[in-house]
């Protein structure tokens, strides 16, 4: 099995994510800078993100991930982005208009149009993918990408937004699979194969 590498952007607690990934008896480690690991290109990167869009964008730059990730994405590397770790794969966000995303997916994050923010809780996924269809996922966010040609699941909070995206071997989840019960664990296992 391919090793799973957590891109550690120092943006919050990684315990539950590590714990969720550890159930898969796959080799797992967290890496803070690309130079700290001898990448072969055959790894699976998991990029969680908590906090503001600009904070994650800054961390990617400061910890020297930006050129590495651009190469990784353009050469068809395997990556799973979670929450702001998914948003950063897009071009930008209304949360911090100055900050630049990685631009792998086309689109921008907008503020959720609902009087109660942040959105906190469980919502049923509208998805054609069998492993997500009608499953409940745990969301914690105030921003989301309204639409994307690569959307694989959507939910509505005010308006519809992308709950999951996928292009080739790059997966993004706006919700938290590591907090989404057994469904989330199985989903992580599936995308880390």
């Amino acid at each position: 099995m391919k090793p799973v590498i957590i891109v550690d952007l120092k943006s919050g607690n990684l315990l539950s994510l590590e714990n969720a990934l550890n159930h898969h008896s796959q080799s797992l480690c967290r890496v803070q800078q690309p130079k700290d690991y001898n990448f072969t290109g055959d790894e699976i990167l998991v990029m969680p993100g908590q906090g503001r869009f600009a904070f994650i964008a800054d961390q990617i730059k400061t910890l020297r991930w930006r050129p590495f990730l651009n190469d990784w994405l353009s050469s068809g590397g395997h990556l799973v982005g979670i929450c702001v770790g998914m948003q950063i794969l897009f071009e930008g966000s209304a949360e911090d208009p100055e900050a630049r995303g990685l631009g792998f997916f086309t689109g921008r994050c907008e503020r959720l149009k609902h009087p109660k923010t942040p959105m906190v809780g469980w919502a049923k996924l509208d998805s054609y993918k069998l492993n997500m269809k009608d499953q409940y996922a745990y969301f914690v966010n105030s921003y989301g990408v309204p639409d994307c040609e690569n959307a694989t699941a959507k939910v509505t909070y005010g308006d519809a937004f992308c709950a999951a995206v996928q292009k080739n071997r790059v997966y993004g989840f706006q919700f938290h699979p590591e907090k989404s019960g057994r469904f989330g664990r199985e989903l992580l296992k599936h995308v880390c194969q």
Partner: peptide, 12 residues
């Protein structure tokens, strides 16, 4: 009316 705003969140 905020009551018209759609939400897929379910009560916890």
């Amino acid at each position: 009316s905020v009551n018209n705003l759609k939400s897929d969140l379910v009560p916890r």
